[in-house]
Amino acid sequence: MTSTTVDTAAARPAVPSLRRLLANSGISLTAVTTATILIVLAVTDFILQPALLDVTELGYLAQTALPLVLVGAAQTLVVLVRGIDLSVGGIMVLANTTTAVWVGEQGGNHQLLVFAILGLAACAGLLNGLLVAVGGFEPFVATLGTWTIFNGLALKVLPTDGGAPPPSLINFVFGKTAGIPNSFLVLAGVFVVWRILRASKLGTRIYAVGADEERARLNGTSVVGVKLFVYALAGLCAGIAGVLLAGVASSGTPTAGDPYILTSVAAVVIGGTSLAGGKGGIGLTMMAAGALVFISDIVTEVNLETWVSVAASSGLLLAVVIVRSLIDRVAERRSA
């Protein structure tokens, strides 16, 4: 009881007080470690190329991070409810190719078509949700199946790289608003929307379902409803990633999705969101995605070969998970 709490606090004063401090300020220890990784890499990059300390330059860097951030956000949502979504790559290319072909060929009302495409992406996500929450499929298997279906559909829309995304989209991606690169605005937008969701009742439900479905149900949550929402929203995020990628690349690429699937999982894990569900958040994934982008930027800058970048990202992933697993084990032993 109370006495126990006091005892343990007295026995281990340093760490809990730090924890307490962080908890009171609403920041988790995980967030601090992920932010540290990001900052160290960013500072390294800035030292190597001081030219990067310029709004426009940073804007370009942010641009390359956009698709990964959004796919990472999609993956985070699904992982939070103890799932995994391999189809984010498929949804992404579906949105990407349709943007490049349908919207590009169409004159006039681009915005409406883009919204229709995003709606399609959300429906694709909803299909995953239905398979998982209503059909009872394992998330891995359900999204493995839908991944290739979406990939196939994307290939039907656009068999090889090409198409012409609308100039307005390209202009938007490369443009600035009030002196701020639009890529920044998108990143900020994702974060703000996430914070709003996190702070909403629905946000609490998402965490509850991820932590313990049975208890969430006991507390009156509709587990199926929450999952449908989460998968649909993940589809939407992946769709936005695809649309933006069309803008960044100025063309449609039907094969662009696959690398993002596993990289998004890596970003989620490096960020500190637990694959067991209920812990973490999109903010963490955004920081991790940033870290990965800085790694590849540093490698390019120093003129190292690409393999160094691959090795560094994988090494970071491995180091982070192993250290976290060791910390967990120590904590477990202490609490036992």
């Binding site: 609490t204 965490y207 932590a211």
Partner: peptide, 14 residues
């Protein structure tokens, strides 16, 4: 109660 949520979130869940 859901261990991952805070006391406040649990108490006023829903």
């Amino acid at each position: 109660t859901i261990p991952e949520l805070t006391v406040a979130e649990n108490l006023l869940f829903g």
